[in-house]
């Protein structure tokens, strides 16, 4: 199932640690986690509740400061010895990372097209270009017929497809997904995972997903288990 890996990883973690609190209250959420994810790979992070999956996803998404370690995203060293190497982490996320959420998190006041276009406009595209490209993306994901629908009018599967389109809008090569199929039934979960796999191949991207959903395990190239903050390749 795994695609041919290229030599340069899109995500490289080296000795990432994260602890909360100090002294007797100290909790080590991640301990010396190292990981490489290559283009076209779809990777799963598994583990029981509190094992550090979301913490790791937040660090890769540059929304949580690690305590130690280094990280490269798409060939750029963004974290060294626990210190961010860029001050504009939001811009970094906008350019390099796409997020897919458990409950799609579409902005309820924008229609499907604008939910995708807003990311493009934040990156500097003009309104016309953004809407046109958003429409194309929705067509690619076979949800074009719902491009003017408001999120409240979309089914769970449709909303998740729009959310995927939004994650892909700025052509990021790293896509982080937090329980992307948790709100979907098995059939739709399979469709969404196939879609993500195809996108990873087409766009030469890497997808890292936190999941508990056993019915989609066969869609992943690699599965990592997190236990007590330590990462093990399954």
């Amino acid at each position: 199932m795994a695609e041919q890996e290229s030599d340069t990883p899109l995500v490289r973690l080296d000795g990432i640690s994260k602890h909360f609190g100090e002294g007797e209250t100290r909790v080590d959420a991640l301990r010396d986690v190292s990981l490489e994810v290559f283009p076209r790979q779809v990777v799963a992070l598994l583990g029981p509740s509190g094992s550090g999956k979301t913490t790791l996803l937040n660090i890769i998404g540059c929304i949580l400061d690690p305590s130690a370690g280094a990280m490269e995203l798409d060939g750029e060293l963004v974290l060294h010895e626990g210190q961010w190497q860029r001050s504009d982490l939001r811009r970094l996320r906008l350019e390099k990372i796409g997020f897919i959420f458990q409950f799609h998190n579409l902005l309820p006041f924008l229609d499907a097209t604008d939910n995708v276009a807003v990311v493009l406009q934040l990156a500097g595209a003009d309104s016309g270009t953004a809407r046109r490209r958003a429409g194309d993306l929705l067509d690619d994901l076979e949800i074009g017929h719902r491009k003017y629908a408001m999120p409240a009018k979309l089914s769970g599967g449709e909303a998740q497809r729009v959310a995927i389109a939004r994650a892909l809008a700025n052509s990021p090569r790293i896509i982080l997904a937090d329980e992307p199929t948790a709100a979907l039934d098995s059939k739709r979960a399979g469709i969404v995972m196939d879609l993500l796999r195809n996108l990873a191949v087409e766009r030469d991207a890497a997808i890292i997903a936190v999941t508990h959903d056993e019915k989609i395990f066969d869609r992943f190239d690699r599965i990592f288990h997190l236990r007590d903050g330590r990462l093990a390749d399954a």
Partner: peptide, 16 residues
Amino acid sequence: LKQIATLKLIGAPDRT
């Protein structure tokens, strides 16, 4: 707040 958090996560600057 959830929508604002989403906007921040997808890269919206504070001025937006």
